[in-house]
Design a binder for these strands. Sequence first.
DNA 1: GTCTGGTAAGTAAGTACTTACTTATTCATG
DNA 2: CATGAATAAGTAAGTACTTACTTACCAGAC
Lengths: 252, 252
Amino acid sequence: MSKAIETVKAETTQGGARMAGGERRAQILCVAMRLFSQRGFSGTTTKEIAQEAGVSEAIIFRHFATKQELYRAILDFKSCAVGVVDPRVCVADAIRRKDDFAVFSGLARLLIDHHEQDTEFMRLLTHSALEGHELAQMFWDRNVRDLYDFLGGYVRERQREGAMREFDPAIVVRAFLGTVIHHSLNNTLWDKERRLLDITNERAADEFARILLEGVTTREGGTARARVGDKIKRPAPAARPRKSPNRKPTSK
Amino acid sequence: MSKAIETVKAETTQGGARMAGGERRAQILCVAMRLFSQRGFSGTTTKEIAQEAGVSEAIIFRHFATKQELYRAILDFKSCAVGVVDPRVCVADAIRRKDDFAVFSGLARLLIDHHEQDTEFMRLLTHSALEGHELAQMFWDRNVRDLYDFLGGYVRERQREGAMREFDPAIVVRAFLGTVIHHSLNNTLWDKERRLLDITNERAADEFARILLEGVTTREGGTARARVGDKIKRPAPAARPRKSPNRKPTSK
DNA sequence: GTCTGGTAAGTAAGTACTTACTTATTCATG
DNA sequence: CATGAATAAGTAAGTACTTACTTACCAGAC
């Protein structure tokens, strides 16, 4: 590769010219994240990272002792930076007003938007989960567990007030977050052209929230048929009492 | 590695002794699938595959011209084998009876069970989706698209009969399959110890179906509050008329 | 001068894939 | 039934190239 080409490429990625240590470090981190998210850890070579950053391979190892450490630094950096938009804060108002729809659609919107604008991190996280990287687990434990607790707590509260049915809150959260996260994953991983479903984030968030809250069947009971759940022997709620909610069928 | 050890290991994976061509090929395929699903394509070496299969590297290349071709063969094989349980057949009876709950819980149960017993394929598919492998796309297009059409069709039919609300069927399917698939993915990828939610497949399927059909809010309107959706400007249904259902609010 | 950001040119251990060769199995034939 | 060519399964030891990571050296700002 000629020097000229290398310089041009370097320019486009802000490489080339001499940089302050911190700057260069950040730039390498940035380039590496892009590549790791595209090709995974073992699918990305340090040589590629160096080329894309417009520097020689050696300076990568000046900033990061090993390839592993570079990867770790990325995951570390991102799993902190991701916390800047705290879902709890963003829907705090809706929670206070006990506006269920606003809570769920707001949360969904937040997540879908965030996933859309940070596709890289989503891919990176999935890669590292597959590869069994400890930091993926750490991120999951920290951020996702929090979300479950937070949302589950809200559901439990609304159940106590008689505004929600007696589902296990954890199941409700799983159902909702599943829909939302899968939607994002689907959009970035499998159906980038939106062939199966092409809707705005706003609409997706609203509809998902509506479906969760109202259900898809008509409440008036379209045809004269057995109510849902009549024929199933619902397993004793205490079978696995890990997280059994304060069930209290208030209303009615 | 001593000959003795190699023989033992070979025995456990049915390698070692001379095998008929087809047999050996199948065994390599099997071993390779396990390794690819654990470590991804570029994270797995042909040497490892050979060792685990208890043969020399050369015979891998006797059966498969390249590593890529081996990978392709696996994806090919699996994406066919996976079709043996056709969801459409399995819930055909419920469809005929128009038992919404049976349809959705049955389908969910089928998928979750299947994912649980074939974790390898799920991981493999995710890996290859991340790596942008064409065959992952093919599988998605073939199997998932079918499911969307099938389930979406059922929803549309029930809407025509006034038994379901006027959601875009594709959104309903996305919501439901999202919940189900995410549940599986969660169990195999992030939360293997089931710390966030530990329920049987049967219960998961039933609850997911109930939530989708009934919604989580009480129908009697626990507290005197605005009905869900009152304050939102629902986007004009014809905004993106891709798949707008034959809406016909029959009943009532 | 002496840090500091940078490089060119390594190195040892892998990597996918080949070659030249050895063994076991099959099976028509004398 | 024995036999021996044909064929298929298998291996040890490569090849050419890539990988993560090092070493020895350089140029400019303070």
